[in-house]
Design a protein around this nucleic acid. Sequence first.
DNA 1: TTAATTGATCAAAATATTTGAACTATGTAC
DNA 2: GTACATAGTTCAAATATTTTGATCAATTAA
Lengths: 305, 305
Amino acid sequence: MYSPITIDALRTLDAIDRRRSFAAAAEELYRVPSAISYTISKLEEDLGVELFDRSRRKAELTAVGRLILEQGRQILVATEELTALAKQTDEGWETELRICIDSLINCEPVYDLIEQFQKLQPRTELRLTEEVLGGSWDALNSEQCDLVIGAEGDPPSQGFGIHLLGQVEFVFAVSASHPLTDMQQPISLQAIQDYPTVVVTDSSRYLPVRSTGLLDGRSRIAVSSIEHKIAAQIRGLGVGYLPKFRIKKELEEGTLKQLMLAETRSPRSISIAWRNTSKGKGVQWFVSQLRQMVFDQDSGLQRPK
Amino acid sequence: MYSPITIDALRTLDAIDRRRSFAAAAEELYRVPSAISYTISKLEEDLGVELFDRSRRKAELTAVGRLILEQGRQILVATEELTALAKQTDEGWETELRICIDSLINCEPVYDLIEQFQKLQPRTELRLTEEVLGGSWDALNSEQCDLVIGAEGDPPSQGFGIHLLGQVEFVFAVSASHPLTDMQQPISLQAIQDYPTVVVTDSSRYLPVRSTGLLDGRSRIAVSSIEHKIAAQIRGLGVGYLPKFRIKKELEEGTLKQLMLAETRSPRSISIAWRNTSKGKGVQWFVSQLRQMVFDQDSGLQRPK
DNA sequence: TTAATTGATCAAAATATTTGAACTATGTAC
DNA sequence: GTACATAGTTCAAATATTTTGATCAATTAA
């Protein structure tokens, strides 16, 4: 036995310091003063170091005593955290829960849920990541995350739990001053070819990459999220489809204009998804909360009235 | 008693996992297998959580068991570190030792010492800071550091241990292409007034600020260290005194030129210094090592042959 | 199949801790 | 200065905890 330090001794030391005396510490720990004396002398002897100034009959720590007290408190906290974590894990709550939010989704309602969850289960560590298009299915499949909010389309393989949130309608939008606004609608695909397209790059790495429905061969501007795509199109850097609910304000204000195309794009369904093997209460909790939400054409993800 | 976790139980758990069986762990811990069984069952019972899969007769951890093992190892390391630290502190070695190196000093020989010290006393945490001019005395006085290397001049108050390293000779230097190089030497103070001076700003905050010996009222460029001052003067941003040993190469290469002034600046003495109240073995060790060093006009701080 | 190994269980033995009473040092009130 | 209260120590006895060794049942290896 290399280290003679004992959780019990650390707890005793802590009580003595907080209560300012051996006698008071004894009372707090439901022991008799001599038992406290014994615990401390034992630690001192095993350690070969004086923890209290024995010159006067007072509970006064030496420098080393203070060191052990202060560092020891950290150890006490760690063990208490550990027991709590163990009990929680045993009850089925995850130690860590990784949620992946698709770039498409409006985050606010999810943040509300997270806040609620943290009040309920402060010891489950939440990790949030953002993925784009197929990236979220991929993250789920490769166990990089436990829950996806806003996965687009159908699962690429078996073994997933899934709940449909709704449909996302995409509109072809360009900046107010864009040359295409002067053309007669519906606009031919041919005409679009002349302008660069803004595409959100797929962050998927393991599963087959999905096409965004836009034709290849044209000049492209690659961005990493819907926010960037919206910004790029407002500035007129390029054109492309955008989820209608995310650009409602821009369409009203006229910073973006919706154009009718010769070929319309069909709405995509979006869902929440999780691995069937996820039995943790955290995932279950989020799933049950999110089941009560819908994805609305006008206002995005929200709890229906 | 809130947390039933015990250092002994954690150690037992660790041994079981490393040795792959209760029996082997028992041997390692000089106990009998039934004692190991007892320790683990007790922890399981107190915690109310199964740590080993009891379905088959094998030392196989549950998920919670693994959690406790892994986190518990951290706690074990912490307690062992703490005992070592306590013993070391009891023997007179500091837990933390803060060394302040004056901007003036060449650091390499100090880094060598630090490396040596860390081999000798890896558990004493060293913190290095750099101060300028009076700043180092100030840091020492206000207990922001325990040892000053390269303090300039005499201590501003009582209670310091001090060891003289040597003298620093300052030369007035300008960049090679500076207009002052065309003037006839010795150069009058009047002539210098026409050019901005580079000054190292005194980082001192509590003790009276020291003058750098340069006249006021002229345009100044303030920098935070000797390195910056040398660089600024090489670029011709300003003129000023520099410690000769720090610009030896620049003078040889001709990127800086030494000028003779009408009024010469007397050499300053530099020392190492510590508080008289510092009884720690770390400070003593550094002091005894640094006593063997001298500050040489040509090559700065070094161990004499 | 047999032999060897592993972990669990249990009563007895060995240890460790707690108790309570007596004692001493220190501080406080008068 | 004395008396009194309080705080920490010491020690033997009481109690609690841990360890042991023998025995048993389940697994695994030969």
